[in-house]
Design a protein around this nucleic acid. Sequence first.
DNA 1: GTAAAGAATGTTGTATACAGTATTATTTTT
DNA 2: AAAAATAATACTGTATACAACATTCTTTAC
Lengths: 226, 226
Amino acid sequence: MSGHLEQIRLDSYKPLRELVCEHIREAIINGVFAPGERLMEIQMADEMGVSRTPVREAIRKLEMEGFVVMIPRRGTYVSNMSIKDINDVYEIRISLDTLAAGLAAERISDEELEELQRLLVKVGNAIEENDMTKVVEADIEFHDVLYKASRNERLRNIINNLREQITVIRGVSMRYPGRLKDTQEEHRRLVESIAARDVEKSQEMARIHLENAERTLMAAMSERKD
Amino acid sequence: MSGHLEQIRLDSYKPLRELVCEHIREAIINGVFAPGERLMEIQMADEMGVSRTPVREAIRKLEMEGFVVMIPRRGTYVSNMSIKDINDVYEIRISLDTLAAGLAAERISDEELEELQRLLVKVGNAIEENDMTKVVEADIEFHDVLYKASRNERLRNIINNLREQITVIRGVSMRYPGRLKDTQEEHRRLVESIAARDVEKSQEMARIHLENAERTLMAAMSERKD
DNA sequence: GTAAAGAATGTTGTATACAGTATTATTTTT
DNA sequence: AAAAATAATACTGTATACAACATTCTTTAC
């Protein structure tokens, strides 16, 4: 119940609330705080060596991002993702990722396209090496370039937020036999379609990719129900 | 520069920050605060008769909702919507409203369907009476029932947020000659498709509706550039 | 023995105080 | 006179203090 969070350092010049927010978000994503667990302001503030003010502001942000739920005068609790929640997220993401892929096919620059291909290789290497941390890292980079190429900042923010919300359980599907290889192949085809500036096909590839990702995740989760 | 905001009353039991947030949001939507205008915490707190704490928390929320931009150590400014921003919002909304309409066609209950048809009439009456306040009110109700029927709370939140972000300028398109009548007809067809549980057609109707709305808004805005 | 009521404890909600930084105005120097 | 530097002012960022409310435990009454 204690020693969950590391002390905050003020190295970069971000407001404290941002650092605190990222800190808590990561702790939730990494399972340091279990779903449903109560988060107490004073305790977290003490552990991170800051006052309650930035902690409160961080919690407000996390609430909007869907990581925690606040009950007035009762407290803050870590959200627990139900099957329904995951379904809801994927329903939206199938729409938005399809949109983003189509826009990217129209708007991506040659430099970004090269970057995308470079990151595809990077993810591939990480998979070969079986280095999960590197896979996750490169995968995030890959998607970020893709969403940036849509030239729609709001879209990028919404998708990234949805992605983060299911990060907690994405690890489950990553460990699903063969899923990484499939993902890589799906990404490859998507990039191929975008490189060909084929809007329709890019959209279809994105949709297929997301639908597969959801299917695997669902399968992995129901298997894990032990 | 002063007297912009009314005093806050604590009638219901919502946290102060929520009341303050709604207050400021409405002031922005109603043009009380001009786009680009600087918002100062102490001043707003004084005007509403509360302390800075709930005001700060409200501003954080409005920042995430896209109504204001914060520059660290500089202050908060009301976002100003560019043509690009409107384009971005509609790009996303065309996707999400299409999704929502399709889901609603699958999942709506008979009671909700009746409610939808009732609200359609209500909007129609308001248009006949040329009562803009009533039109807006009924329109919001109509869409809320529709989004609820999608049975995807996240989707509903995201769309509602996007809707609010462009509320500031939606009045412009409402006053566009003939647009209200067209809107009504488009809504009617959408409800018809949903009532028939025709997913494909509902999606198409929603897409057409949104595309028309965007087109009108763009036309109205460029005409207003005087 | 059990249930209800009250008191004590702890946590959230709000206010305020203080510190640090950005901006603006004034003064000095070129 | 114009530009630069410095000082003053004002706002944001953070900390802390206080009040209100929820929860839990203890005590009392039936």
